[in-house]
Amino acid sequence: MKHTISVLVENEFGVLSRISGLFSGRGFNIESLCVAETLDPTISTMTIVTTGDDMILEQILKQLNKLINVIKVIDFRDTDYVSREMVLVKVNADEKTRAEILRMVEIFRGKIIDVSPRTYTIMITGDEEKLKAFLALVRPLGIKDLVRTGPVAMARGDKTLKTKEKQPKGGNGDG
């Protein structure tokens, strides 16, 4: 099972390696990892997509929480959330296919951000399903190059990633 986790961390040097070291050292998977500063420049968010059963996920959440630089860990399992990813894809584009490609990009509300005599570079954002569908469509044209950002996620509605400080918690095991 895939799971998306957001981790709020101190925006300090070395923190990324503590997180990635935790995953590699304990044999947890990272499908993707996305890091950037938040509204508060002393804090960064990491959005991590990982896989594992419930017991592994529980360990991942606890282990992340245990790291000294981690301020908050958000497990999106029981939250309604939105998640978006961006992909840049360079496809073959000649006289015959250009119009067709343009139409597809429009349907998927993407953008063509670079053009060469033989290629288009397309930018698409969306959730995983949407990106998958789009890539399946352009694959027959010949994909020359592809980069993805990995998803970033946010809870729906009023909920925010506010950085309430880690509180000593009454232990119910999910501390």
Binding site: E10, I68, N69, V70, E165, K166, P168, G170, N172, G173
Partner: peptide, 13 residues
């Protein structure tokens, strides 16, 4: 701010 160990067990537990 990111390090606050839990010292008191949950009374219900």
């Amino acid at each position: 701010r990111s390090y606050q160990p839990t010292y008191f067990g949950h009374p219900g537990q």
